[in-house]
Write a protein that binds this DNA or RNA. Structure first.
Lengths: 272, 272
DNA sequence: ATCATCATTCCATTAATTGGAATGCCTGAT
DNA sequence: ATCAGGCATTCCAATTAATGGAATGATGAT
């Protein structure tokens, strides 16, 4: 079983391919160690970390010592380094206090419970969406792998499409946004050309909600409606319901769109 | 409304009284900036941070730049610095992956739903308990202010008492643990002497669960049962239900203890 | 008892941090 | 349009801390 440590893969948005990075120094290296440390929920020994960062042992040792001193890291019973309570407290407290979350948490819970599916809130950041809040339903045997702070390409998610639909009004705008690089294909359904995307955005604009019919992951579909936290015209982000296709096909989600809007409306006024 | 920024108070376990700390340097200062940054959910400007840390502007600027470079901090629309998506992703992903959490998350959800009260999992760390997982019930008008990674004195919490009851077997042991410093009084009910505490631990040992009858906060009571994640004899931590006294007095909690144990037992076997 | 592995400490060299001061940039007032 | 004030950003020489190869403890397995 999970004895020692689990050096996982699959992470990171773009920048830091930790291992062989261009030799970071000083504080940057300490921060890189912190980020690497987060990848080992079971803890990691100094030598393992040394290998992962391929840096001399004393350097890593100092970095870890520094992290421990500030409470951002801790050592478990076996002497392995793990993320510290202080870091977790920091992150969760900050998260709980963020205005967008306090205003959406209850709505997301209601949605997750009502539909027994995962509810997300996410914002647009360039060509990707960033998940800012997430509520899982209760009993679910399967769980979404999404994580707060995690990302997905905007063009193949319901949230991305509904947010893009209000920004990319013309075919030219869509083409400019798509830019040189082709859109990543995630599934056979993914829309990978500016033309397809433009069509989809037109439709999204008309109906006022975005859908993702297994365009990001086979077997999962999604419906998203925009959320206006600041301006009444510019959405700050969008809320989505992600469902397993076999249990709740995209048609069922579309049929529920009014119910979703009701939940959002009622828990918005609740605070207003 | 929440225009600028909100420099809060009330935090930290012991060590870093940020503001006038003994002039940290190098990476330590960067980490201190990171911790301070977490206190401003609405973001903070460079000068504000400069004041908060009372350090020269360029230094803080470099620290923040460094944090941004690694994704641990970001800048919002107004140019204010906030905790970065990367930090949140890190913390939440790490949290989700921790063995103790994957094994308890579902049980806590069931407890929170069943009793419509907040369920916690916490471990003992010296004279305090550290909350490691938390699930709030749905509709609740009031919410516990506890945060994951947060702490409370062990002697006035149900979790602390049930865990201590298995470690401090004799009156002498209790006295040694209490040590010189008197136990902090949180409410009129708080047990502040070794004698009182020893009595309470005796009873806790007999009944196999710990209670906190408004000993930590007036109007809130709590019941905790130990959890054995590793060894079958030494508890790794404890799970508690925290309830508002007027809604569910301590007697009601005690009456529910078997139901609580059932939930824990069933979701333990579920994974075994 | 011996060996292997890992954590920790040492210290001269090296290279990065430091912070006072100057500059650039934006916003709002006149 | 112009100016003032507040803020972010950049400069640079002196200083100070980080660096890492090597030595030393600590720990546990054979």
């Amino acid at each position: 079983m999970a004895d020692g440590s689990t050096p996982p893969d699959s992470m990171n948005t773009a920048v830091g391919s930790d291992s062989e990075a261009g030799k970071l120094v000083g504080s940057d290296r300490v921060l890189a160690v912190l980020k690497e440390l987060a990848r080992y929920p079971d803890g990691v020994s100094l030598v393992e970390m040394t290998r992962a960062m391929n840096s001399p042992k004393p350097t890593i040792h100092r970095a870890l010592t520094s992290l421990c001193r500030s409470g951002l890291a801790d050592r478990d019973a076996r002497g392995h380094y793990v993320l510290g309570d202080e870091l977790l407290r920091m992150a969760f407290a900050h998260y709980d206090a963020r205005p967008e979350h306090v205003r959406l948490q209850s709505a997301l819970k209601q949605l997750a419970e009502k539909f027994q599916e995962t509810a997300h809130y996410a914002v647009l950041d360039g060509r990707e969406v960033v998940y800012r809040a997430k509520v899982d339903p209760h009993g679910g045997a399967v769980r979404m792998t999404s994580v707060i702070g995690g990302r997905n390409p905007a063009h193949c998610t319901a949230i991305g499409k509904v947010l893009l639909s209000r920004r990319l009004l013309t075919r030219e705008a869509v083409e400019a946004w798509v830019g040189g690089a082709a859109l990543q294909r995630r599934t056979p359904q993914t829309m990978c050309t500016a033309e397809e995307l433009h069509q989809a955005l037109e439709q999204t604009r008309c109906q006022g909600f975005g859908i993702d019919d297994q365009e990001n992951e086979v077997g999962v579909n999604c419906l998203a409606v925009p959320v206006f936290l600041k301006s009444p015209s510019e959405p700050t982000g969008a809320v989505s319901i992600s469902a397993l296709t076999y249990r709740k096909p995209i048609g069922a989600l579309i049929a529920s769109v009014d119910a979703i809007r009701d939940v959002l409306a009622s828990s918005a006024t609740e605070r207003a």
